[in-house]
Write a protein that binds this DNA or RNA. Sequence first.
DNA 1: GCCTGATGTGTACGCCGTCCACACTGCCAC
DNA 2: GTGGCAGTGTGGACGGCGTACACATCAGGC
Lengths: 214, 214
Amino acid sequence: MTAIDAARHTYHHGDLRQALLEAGLELAAASGPDAVVLREATRRVGVSPNAAYRHFADRDALLEAVSDAAMARMAGSIDEIFDAIPPGDPREVACAQLRAVGTGYVAFAVDHPGLFRTAFFVPADMERAATAEKAGRSGRTPFELLTVAIDGLVASGTMPESRRPNAEFLAWSAVHGFALLVIDGPLRALPRPAVDATTQRVIDMVEAGFTAAE
Amino acid sequence: MTAIDAARHTYHHGDLRQALLEAGLELAAASGPDAVVLREATRRVGVSPNAAYRHFADRDALLEAVSDAAMARMAGSIDEIFDAIPPGDPREVACAQLRAVGTGYVAFAVDHPGLFRTAFFVPADMERAATAEKAGRSGRTPFELLTVAIDGLVASGTMPESRRPNAEFLAWSAVHGFALLVIDGPLRALPRPAVDATTQRVIDMVEAGFTAAE
DNA sequence: GCCTGATGTGTACGCCGTCCACACTGCCAC
DNA sequence: GTGGCAGTGTGGACGGCGTACACATCAGGC
């Protein structure tokens, strides 16, 4: 009954698109992308199934919109942690930023597994990865935040230039893989404290890979 | 028409379970877990939809069997690369083993994305991760191969004992995440040579994380 | 040589996504 | 004002899916 217009009296809804999107987000949050069922979303909004087709080309279009919204929520969540880092020694700030992005990434996945899986369900390629739709309040995607952190590592001399190109991919892979193994992979059974501890070790590994001497 | 009994003349099939499993594998290989459709599998085998229920409790049971078989194929594929490593200096062997598991893992994901996604679709927890169903010909799961490699790193003094506990998770996360980002994530557009090069950098990162001085 | 249990078939139900024709309504031109 | 039009929601239908229930067919042990 959240965010839902169960007893509508006007023939027209007003903002059906937004309502469907929110219903879709609820479904996704509860059980992942497969649960984003067009008929169920319209049911929750109190509208006939076909009404959805005035706002989304088909179920995939709805799912994609939900996916984008989920990604935006994740971006906002990470952004918040990122922005809370106090200024200071550039080297330390950059390390803290890297850690913030990684920690926030895993935390969001663990706290909102359905949204996390939905965010990555509709395969978005690199160009679309930075669209405003997917960005958080501040307009920065997790990928961009990662870029900021890594640039800081290079600028502060913590990481050699030679390792810079596409370094985002390495950090991202580690954290993304860990998140997935934990939320619906073989590490599902890991208790939360172990998840948090291992998250830090994953980030340690990334740091070591960035800063290790050759 | 592969591995399919399209024109059966006996009332009983003979080995319907196996036939359905193979049909399911074909579907999974072509388009991932969602494509494992019970009715389509029975259709390919030339049998009525309900016949499947004599061998699988429901569609999920079929999918799980297909998932296990997909995991076994991956295990076999990695095993092969692993076993091809020539003996020699223990330190070098251990490093080569680690690299073999990582490289094989990503290669399988890229070459058989549908099977890879299916293998991880039905969430198997740690206990089940080592079951014979999922093992390759030699009976060793990728996780076990990873364990062998890491144990070798410790034994040869390349990696400190203090980092040993659950180190598998770190390596696994990095490689798994990279594979997923590449096959249906934001790195989908990455050309194959770049994928291969980046795979090696991911493994470099893992190695650095294992061996770096504290 | 029959009977029984295992295996495959047929029919039917409810859910899904989606197409088509139709109903309602807000708003702009006149 | 009022008539009409474009935008929005409805109703009914279709085919595909998973699956339950009753029935048909067969193979092997008494």
